[in-house]
Amino acid sequence: MNATTIPCHEGPVRRLLREAGSTRLTLVLLAVVALAVIAHARIEGGLAGPLAAAFALAAANLGAALLANERLRADLALFVFHLALLVLLALAALGRLTALTGTLELAQGEVFDGRLLTQESGPLHPDGLTRLRFVNDGFTIAYAEGWRRGRTSNDVRVFGHDGRATRHTIGDIEPLVLDGYRFYTTPNKGFAIVMRWVPRGGQPPERGTVHLPSYPLNEHRQAQSWRIPGTSREAWVMLDLDAPAIDPSRASTFQLPGAHRLVFVTGGERRELRPGDNFAVPEGVLVYEGLTAWMGYKVFYDPTLPWLLACAGVGVLALAAFFWRRFVRERGPA
């Protein structure tokens, strides 16, 4: 952190490094980073580009200082702290290039097949999701009075590359980690309508689920529209409950509603269905089999995570060692 020593015969590269690593420039760049962070936070959608540029400039200044500032290199603890900062910035940038975040929903008994509902990934992300398989074996969520969500416990079965299944329980702060991909349960969950579609053309029947909006967040909007597979026919369903599935007046758990009706509308025709009821249309027959639950998951992948943690740990230790020596062992005014 002290002033750079200026050699008598300084080459152009060394001079450039010294100027780029100037400690006065560091202060300016810290202010630039602060402004970029504030702008990123204040502007809708963020300002990722300027933020990355500000951090890149700060990293360049730090790198040049590590090379050119002899006082910085002479103090091991201070050098390690600044080096850790630089590596941290580099790892964070690498992480953004290789990371993936996404969401998916799985009904009870449904197998994850590598497809995500939403996805955002860096250009260098090595897509390994398609080889991962796990099944949602059902979940429990405790609720305190007033629909205050408590512990979530989700049983999953993971199928390894050899086809063997292993059981895990995940939820809240315990993700399922598969090949570096971290799957988290989320507050986004609800009811799913299980339907069987029997086409008239002799094609094999299909069984699937229609996920209703998250419950209890959308308690009064339990409706969904979808297209019947293999047809151009639009259908709309609404779950009509006699009472809330989760009683808000007492401690309870997430559970499937007991008494309910399913309002089914297609081609201008409306009917109320109960489990086992059929609905015939010109293209085939839909059979309402019943209700199940779906869980929304968040998936996160960043191969730099353990390195970021190690780097941050080393950096803080080095900083503590530097201050310990400066303020405790070497007592007296600076």
């Binding site: 809240d172 702060i173 971290r182 995570l305 941050a312 950096g315 803080v316 900083l319 201050f323 303020f327």
Partner: peptide, 26 residues
């Protein structure tokens, strides 16, 4: 102030670890 800086750094690091587990992002 130096003590505060070290402990704020530790607060940010442990907060990031917790955020990764709780919200799926650090």
């Amino acid at each position: 102030l130096a003590l505060a800086f070290v402990f704020e750094s530790l607060m940010l690091v442990t907060g990031a670890i917790w955020a990764q587990d709780a919200w799926g992002r650090y």
